[in-house]
């Protein structure tokens, strides 16, 4: 059963003489309790996707087309007061930099109490503080830190606190925007271990956005690869790793040198990611693609489902090419 269904989501930044399309016809489905990884480089549209999903986008970003179906309602165009009812209780977000996500002049516990009591009017202050301590305990922060200010916690603890805060009202869906890029690998692994454990206990689904495909290959159930504002491939982590079909996915996978297997010279992907203000015609990847052929610079392929995953590349003809 799906928690979230995104269809044809298109987001444009309306500035200057022509709009910049940062998310272009993005569609995917998220199942209950699933971790969907979204991988992409700078300018791939992954951050735009997050702000659109959580309806946190601000002008000049405008959702120009598509639906985000969550709980049987379309989040696009939902009134702010309706949206507020869903926030935290159903839909929560963990931001990239916990340093900026927590209020520096409020005790950590007070920020939990704020959220808890806003969403449950019957909760008294004492019970809310107790719940705050419990939530912090869930991510391995001892209860006596509930009265600490954010600056009194280390970076790793702040990041964990912000994860606990997102989980405060038992959401079904947590969107995580590079939640561990500011912490070290050892801490990253400890935090992700906690996220996986909590997901098992609480059953929430996760959209996990990062540029680190090697991490997603281990963490996510399914992965969507974004390039130039579009999903170019989506499939299970395993099939994407063992059988990547899109040349970009393959190039990205081979951009991470192995930790153990035999070393060979890797080339990464020559060239640079596209500038969305002036995207290449046809497939956005064609200027860097090792497998391009006649027509890739004119026709833009749509997603085609092959076995357990979907790919948007003219190597896999479908007949529904869009020009």
């Amino acid at each position: 059963m799906s928690v979230l269904t995104v269809e044809g989501l298109t987001v444009e930044y309306v500035t200057g003489d022509r709009p910049v399309r940062a998310c272009d016809d993005v569609s995917f489905e998220l199942r209950r309790g699933e971790i969907l990884g979204v991988a992409g480089e700078s300018g791939s549209g992954k951050s735009t996707l997050i702000t659109a999903l959580t309806r946190l986008q601000r002008p000049p970003a405008v959702t120009t087309a598509g639906r985000i179906e969550f709980h049987g309602t379309d989040l696009v165009g939902l009134a702010p007061d309706q949206l507020r009812k869903l926030r935290w209780t159903s839909l929560a977000i963990v931001l990239q930099s916990a340093m900026d996500a927590l209020n520096p002049v409020m005790r950590v516990g007070a920020q939990f109490v704020d959220v808890l009591r806003t969403h449950d009017k019957t909760l008294n202050s004492k019970a809310a503080w107790a719940r705050a301590a419990e939530l912090l305990g869930m991510v391995g922060i001892s209860a006596d830190r509930v009265r600490a200010y954010p600056h009194e916690l280390s970076g790793g603890m702040r990041q964990r606190a912000s994860i606990a805060l997102a989980l405060a009202c038992g959401p079904e869906l947590v969107v995580m925007d590079e939640p561990t890029t500011a912490v070290d690998v050892v801490m990253q692994r400890q935090i992700l271990a906690q996220v996986l454990r909590l997901r098992k206990e609480l059953g929430f689904a996760v959209v996990f956005v990062t540029h680190d495909l090697s991490l997603l290959l281990e963490l996510a159930d399914r992965i969507a690869i974004m390039y130039g504002g579009r999903i170019v491939e989506i499939g299970t982590a395993e099939s994407l790793y063992t059988k990547p079909r899109h040349p970009y996915t393959r190039g990205l996978r081979d951009s991470f040198p192995p930790l153990r297997s035999e070393l060979r010279t890797l080339t990464g992907i020559p060239g640079s990611p596209p500038d969305l203000r002036d995207p290449p015609p046809g497939c956005a990847f064609h200027p860097r693609c090792p497998d391009r052929f006649d027509g890739c610079d004119q026709q833009r392929p749509g997603l085609v489902t092959i076995e357990d995953h979907a790919v948007a590349c003219r190597l896999y003809p479908s007949g529904d090419d869009q020009s």
Binding site: Q188, L192, S214
Partner: peptide, 16 residues
């Protein structure tokens, strides 16, 4: 702790 898709067994991995 380093990401390593070759590691295979996903379940133990995040037993950190």
């Amino acid at each position: 702790s380093s990401p390593d898709p070759e590691r295979g067994d996903r379940n133990n991995l995040f037993d950190a």
